[in-house]
Every structure is written in C-alpha cells, then in structure tokens.
Design a protein around this nucleic acid. Sequence first.
DNA 1: CTGAAAGCGCTTACAG
DNA 2: CTGAAAGCGCTTACAG
Lengths: 324, 324
Amino acid sequence: MNIKEISELCGVSTCTVSRVLSGRGKEYRISDKTAERIFRIAADTGYRPNYLAHSLNTGKTNSIGVVLANRLDSYLGGIVEGIESHLRGTEYQMVVATCDNSPDIEKEEVEQMLYRHVDGMIIYPLAPPREPAEAAMKYEAPPTSDEVPLVIVGRKASVEADEVMLGDYPAGQSVAQNFMAAGCRTFAVVTRARHCSSDYGRERGFVDALREAGVEQERITIIANRETPSEEEINRLKTAEAIFGVNSFLLLEYLEWLRRTKDISRLRLSSVGEVEGSELFDLLFEPLIMPSRQLGVEAARMLLWRIENPGAPCRHTEISLLVQ
Amino acid sequence: MNIKEISELCGVSTCTVSRVLSGRGKEYRISDKTAERIFRIAADTGYRPNYLAHSLNTGKTNSIGVVLANRLDSYLGGIVEGIESHLRGTEYQMVVATCDNSPDIEKEEVEQMLYRHVDGMIIYPLAPPREPAEAAMKYEAPPTSDEVPLVIVGRKASVEADEVMLGDYPAGQSVAQNFMAAGCRTFAVVTRARHCSSDYGRERGFVDALREAGVEQERITIIANRETPSEEEINRLKTAEAIFGVNSFLLLEYLEWLRRTKDISRLRLSSVGEVEGSELFDLLFEPLIMPSRQLGVEAARMLLWRIENPGAPCRHTEISLLVQ
DNA sequence: CTGAAAGCGCTTACAG
DNA sequence: CTGAAAGCGCTTACAG
C-alpha cells in the first residue's frame, strides 16, 4: 500500500493524499469530504506511510541517538529508561549504542548515528583518560554540536554542549552533614583515582563540608584507590567512624577487607548507588539513590528543547542527589 | 556531498559511482583506474552515502529491532549487551524499546519497529497474564514472524518463531543436587505464582531432582508467592535446611523476614541471579549466574541466520544456567 | 566497460 | 480547492 494506490482509490492526486495524511488538509483548504474519504480509505487499507521516503524528503528521521560509554548497568539503564519514557508519546524514537569504554567504538557509534541521520544525540561520554600519555594518543572528544543537536549527560565532556549533570558536590556535603549529625568524629572517603569529575565532586563536597564545620585535617582520611585495596589503605581506614564511598561498588570492596580486621557493624556508611539486598548486611548503611531515571528524562527534555531552539546558548542542568 | 557531485568530480555517471562504491566495480567490470579515482575522491571529500535513500531503494535498513518487556535491569541489560556485541562489526545496528510491562506499549513498539522497516526483531516478550480474564481481554501475542524475521528470547511467547531460552529445568536440578551433596535433608523452593514458564521450569527441575533422589514430599516445601511474604509462609520455610529461590530478589525478600525468627547463617541458599555485595551477607549463599549476555549473543546470531534463511523451520536453542 | 532513464515512495513549490 | 511536475539521493535493469 502506497500513497499512489490510495490516491487512485480516492480518485485524487498523490499530493492531495499527502497533504491530508500529513494533517495539513485544512491548511491547503482541501474539502472535508475529500479529506474524510482519504482518511477512511487509508484506515481501511491499513496504509502506513513509508518512513524512509518520508525522511528522505523532510530530512527528519524522528530518531534520537543515545551513545553510552559503558554497558547497560542499572545506572545507565535508568538513564535510558528516563529518556525513553520522556520520548514515548512524542514522535521520536530512540536508538541506543554502548561503547564498552573504548574511544574508537565511541567514535564509530557516533558516526553511525550521524549516518542514520538522527535528529539529535544524547551522550554519556567516556571518562577522560587517566594517563596524560594515553590522552594525547587516543582520546577524542565526542562530536561538536554543530553537526546535530547534542546533550551531554552524567559526566563532563570537553565539548561545548547542553549538559545534564548530577549534583555531586552537594551530595558529598549532605553525606558529611548526616555523619556529623549522627555524632561521628573521624571520617574517611573512598574514591577512585581522581580523574573522574563526578567522583571528585562528591569527594570535594564531603571534605569541604567537614572542614567548614571545623573538622581537623587529621580526622579526615582520603583514600584514592587505583587498583584493589592495599593493606596500608585498610589500616588508614580503621580509624574512621564513618566512611563515604563515592560509589557503592568501591565501598563494598573496602568493607570486604575491613571486616576481616574490625567489627564494622557500628560504622556509619554511605555511598552513591543502591545495593540490592543491603538490608541483609546488618550495617549502618545509607545509600544515596542515583536519580538516573531523572537524568534521562531531563536529558531528553533538554534535547527536544534544543531541537526547537537551535541558536540558543548552551544550558546546564543539575539533578540533585541526596540521602534518602 | 552526494553521489551526483562525486560523479561530476570524477567525470563519470552516477551509476558508475554507485556501482564502485557499493563494492561491485569488479562485477560490472569497471576499469581499475576509474574505480580508484572514484574511491579517492569519495574519501577526499568525506562522502557518506545517504542511508535513507539507500534503504529506500534496497528495502534493507540494516537495523534490528529489540523489544523488551521490562525496563533495563542487569538481566535485560546483559541481553542487550550480547546482541550489540554480536552485531558490532556486522552491517547491522540495534534499535531498542522497552514496554514497561504493558501489552499496549508492546504492540505500539512492535508497530514502530515495523514502521522503521527493521530487517529483523528480537523480542523478550511480556509474561503471559496471571488471570485468565485478563488474558482474554488484553493479551495479544507479539507479531507473527511472517512480517519480519523474529527471534523470541528468554521467555516463551505464543508465537511460532525461533527461540533462545534459558535451561531452567536443568538449573533447578543442579541446585537440588548441590543441596543434597552438601548434606541437606529438608528443602524449600520460593517461587512466584506459577504463571511464568521460566520460574516454573526452575521449580520443577528442583523438585523433580529431589523426588528422583528419593526425598519424600513432606521434606519439600513449595512456596508460590503472590504478594509480600506472609507469616504462614515464613513458618513453613523455617523447617528447611536449604532454600532455592527462583530469583534472587524473591529469596532476599524472604530472608529478610526469616532472619527475624531464626538464625539463617547455616542455611544453604541458592537463587538465580547474582547479588552485588553478597559477600557481606555472611550466608551460605550460592547464586546461579544469569548468562544474559550469552542469551543476547545467541539471539542475535540466530536472527542473522534467520535473515539469511527465511524458509527454514523454526529453531530452539537453550542456554545453560548452572551453579558457578 | 559505461551511461541514460526509470524507479523507490514521498513532499512541495508552482500554477491554475 | 486541487493537480502536474520536479525533486530527495540512491539503485538497477536495459541498452550500447
């Protein structure tokens, strides 16, 4: 079934059919009877316009590319879900690709998206490389936004584009405040080596809030992890009454080691990201819930806005990430 | 940059360019110099063929639709990852949609995929409805495979199509055998109300293996959960030395209740699906790892095969799911 | 070995 | 109020 057959069945020309079916019958002042007949016949025959031909003509594909640095864990899954739910009901559909943390794949996938003529892209970018040497050799920023409307979500990238980020710094602050309110006197934060702006923001927020509250340097332990936990790190951790993990995986890893040398059941613990079954831990563990779905919703909302407003200056939105 | 401009730059016709660039220069016996010149100019100008025009002509979009019943948790995320990794390097790209467990959305998303002219689809279908009444009213099977090559993954659907399923029954058996090998004498299985074939397969495998090994009926407790755990259920569970959960969420839910009335640290536990941080539980817990990635890989492999072999009879593959 | 021409299914000035 | 015609960018018999 194509537009030509419809037009023959209706006894009108293809352009009339096209105009009516694209909802612009009124605009072209096509008579109501003609319009109705066209609608009815289209419905009866189960006509569906050809997406490819339509897009070829209009230059719009109604698809949004989503490129994600990592595999789909619950965090990225949440972002995707948020994007999808915001897009549902609009004319847009989502095309997803993940990059397995490889800059080459990221580049390729972005290319693919452009090749598919997506109307816009949402990118959760790779973390910048740890080693400067690596950086010089391999890293390339995602495409600049002049090719296509672009929103960066969840992690900074070296592109001028709209951004939707987590409120990492305030999250760190709020954890520190909770710990102090619970009466803790010595603190630790466990983080990855500091190349990732998200982790670093949380750490800074945490440490700054403590300092501002008058906690002395020697009561704050900072562990910037590179590989698996070392004995020296575990020893430093022992003195803390409260530990903040910039993410839950990392915290759990340390706890596994720590519990061998110390009773951890009275320790105050907090980290970013829920842990399923954590009720069984028997620990004073308060996870910060990742608002990943909300990140996705906001990113999609912003992208659609950007598509409508190509010229406007870049915007930055922050989604808050608080205890509870 | 389009094919016409290239042809003008090369001083040949558009069809010659098209033939060379589609890699069929030899076939049409186009001279090597011409071909080389075309390749060079195309590369120099950064020419990329127009995907939409190409697809409109060939009827192939090189895209695979993936429709998932639920949001992207780590299970479905794994499937998606498997599909994607198998597709990477081929000419195919993946379009994903999730359905939030709604039959209406599922139908709509499948429509969308057909509208987008996907070359094939992989569906993780909705669970069949629990109530027969609901069934009659709302449930509609995914599209039959005559519209487009189709692979059903992870859960049975009432369609005649290629399938990639988990080895649920053998998994249940292997858990039972492990429990018996560990010397347990009384057993329980916790499952959802039995509408889901996957859960039911696991339960049957478990129970059958016990029976075959001579375990009497009264030493096997079966709890088919509907809502939150009830007191009566917890009481029945107390007698068991080993508990098998058809999925880990469910098991954890019961353990939460059970631990209030009983020391669970010597209980043998097993369930399907890893739990992050489970090392901190201090329980005899052995999860069965979901081979979700493998499911995806296999589904993609099968779909590509099906695209090449439209007429062949339906195939069924089972991915094994064993302890460790 | 290569090209002119028709066609994929739709849209959109332009003309009436 | 409606249609003939050109065009989107590519492919592919057909003819030479």
